[in-house]
Simulated scan of single mutants.
Amino acid sequence: MIRPLLASLVAVDAHLLGQRPLPAAARLPRFLREFLYFGIKEARACLFVVLFFAAVFTVPREGLLGLPRYDVLLVVALAIQFGMLAAKLETWDEFKAIGLFHAVGFALELFKTSPAIGSWSYPDAAYTKVLGVPLFAGFMYAAVGSYIIQAWRLFDLRVLHHPPHWMAALVATLIYANFFTHHFIGDYRWYLAACALGLYARSTVVFRPLDRDRRMPLLLAFVLIGFFIWLAENLSTFLQLWRYPNQVGAWAAVHVGKWSSWALLVVMTFTLVANLKHVKERIHVPD
């Protein structure tokens, strides 16, 4: 059953990477045709996210077959990840990058959930918890990297006027550090956001929904992706996957200020993806 599904997915990718719409779609006005394929490619790029959240929706809070929910979600995340690798939907280099996203995210989770910080918590028990953090948690960060990697291929992405890589790496490092240090020396996210704004002000992402190149400011892409992650975070806390201190008694919407944090995290994730060899070749850095 799994092999036919993977074969079908490969066939879908082959069609999406082509430049001819299905006959039914070809009769639509160009705007609707491109908008349709843009939506399909976005959904396909979110494969890991969609499958993972399908598991979040369907796995009962008490778990399955005696296995706690967090452990079931870890098994699901690993199965999706290795399935994508086996189907060659990801290369080994991309797989290693996603592993790095997992490690970076998990380290942040360990810090944020520590008793001294207590930014949020994972209320349910699990066999695969390390210092109170279930191992599946890192995959939520890896999912952002997986989306960017998949979108890069499906949309034939290119970036024009990207800042020098060392500058981008420096800002990304400072963004990551601020997630830790703002508990001790103040929150400098808006200063870092201003730096990112100046750094990427001229950067443009070129993408192909169907057969023509379209353009978007790279900064707008960061903000939009951050917004959808914020929506996913609201859904996750509503399902009690984790919770913030103000959600212990009853659920409340995640503060909109988290949107800025996620947008900055997307900047950091994009910087890591941009250093993959085949991605770097499609990034224009002015002399």
Rank of each mutant, 00 (worst) to 15 (best):
E62F: 15
E62L: 13
G63E: 05
G63L: 02
G63H: 13
L64Y: 04
L67T: 15
P68H: 01
P68E: 03
P68D: 09
P68L: 14
Y70A: 13
D71V: 12
D71M: 02
L73Y: 02
L74A: 00
V75S: 07
V76L: 04
A77Q: 01
L78Y: 10
I80F: 09
F82E: 13
G83K: 01
G83H: 07
L85D: 07
A86V: 14
A87H: 08
A87C: 07
K88Y: 12
K88M: 04
L89T: 09
L89S: 10
E90T: 07
T91S: 13
T91Q: 08
W92D: 15
W92M: 15
D93H: 10
F95A: 06
F95Q: 12
K96P: 05
I98A: 08
I98K: 01
I98V: 03
I98S: 03
I98C: 02
I98G: 12
L100K: 03
H102K: 08
A103R: 02
V104Q: 06
G105W: 11
G105I: 00
F106L: 06
F106Q: 01
A107K: 03
L108G: 00
E109G: 00
K112Y: 09
K112T: 14
T113N: 03
S114A: 11
S114T: 07
P115T: 05
P115V: 07
A116H: 15
A116R: 07
A116T: 12
